[in-house]
Amino acid sequence: MGTESSKTRLLLLDVTERLMLEEGYAAVGVRRVAREAEVAPALVLYYFRTLDDLFLAVLRRRADEELKRLDRLLGGPQPLRALWRLSSHPGNALTTEFTALANHRKAIRAELAAYAERYREAQLEALTRGLAEAGTELPPEVSPAVLLVLTNALGRVLMMENAMGMNTRHAETLAFVEEVLQRYEGTSAPAKTSGR
């Protein structure tokens, strides 16, 4: 309900996202969002019939933005570095919140899985094209798909551990990542996650 481009609707989405990032998805409720946005709770329900509808709108907005950004980032001269930056970016914290929320809400789980599949396929297409355009040759036993999954998994684990304050052996791992990136794409800014 309400128009997609309404300033109030966008404010409600911004408030919800901020609460999820600062306090976790459990902090999000119709009354809390209304109070933070300085509107009546009925107005939140005017734009979003249910709390799940509000969560889904935040998920869709961010997922659509990421899909648009993806092709541009992986289409540059260093697609492996771009993939590493995408995978280990602290902005993935919102994805972590949605993953936790998906454990409790079927609608969120279905939507998150659908976007994740689209995102993975778009990543693979962009990475494969970027590697070809950059003339980067991978060893025969490492396909772009395997590289994609490994990079995403490693980046996400390091980012989540960093968020918890754990960074044991991260320096060694990041040095290895940098060595691999240099081997395939040359020197650039050091590989890093949001923490140490």
Rank of each mutant, 00 (worst) to 15 (best):
A114W: 01
S143E: 09
A113L: 11
L158T: 14
R118W: 11
A116R: 07
G130D: 02
L83N: 03
A93E: 05
L11V: 11
M20F: 01
A100R: 08
T151V: 12
R129Q: 13
L12W: 01
R9I: 10
D52N: 03
L131M: 09
A191F: 00
A153Y: 13
R61H: 04
A110P: 03
D14E: 13
L147K: 02
Y25F: 15
T16P: 02
A134M: 06
S5Q: 14
M166L: 11
S6K: 07
V30N: 07
N152A: 09
E36N: 01
L127H: 03
T3A: 09
R49L: 01
N167K: 06
L127R: 01
Y184D: 11
L74S: 03
W84K: 05
Y46F: 14
T187I: 02
A114R: 05
R18V: 08
Y46A: 00
R109D: 13
G165Q: 08
T187N: 08
R69D: 07
E66H: 11
A34M: 07
L112G: 06
L86V: 13
F98Y: 02
E65I: 14
P139Y: 06
G195A: 00
P144M: 09
L12T: 02
A191I: 00
P140K: 03
L43T: 15
A116E: 08
P139T: 13
V33Q: 05
L19V: 10
D71R: 10
E38G: 08
E121M: 14
A57G: 00
L70M: 15
L45G: 10
A126P: 05
D52K: 01
A40S: 12
L11C: 03
L101N: 01
V15P: 04
F48P: 01
R81G: 04
A113T: 12
A34T: 09
M20N: 00
S188E: 12
L131V: 13
S6D: 12
A93I: 06
E111V: 09
L101H: 00
A40R: 06
S5I: 14
G76C: 06
L21C: 04
M160D: 05
E133K: 15
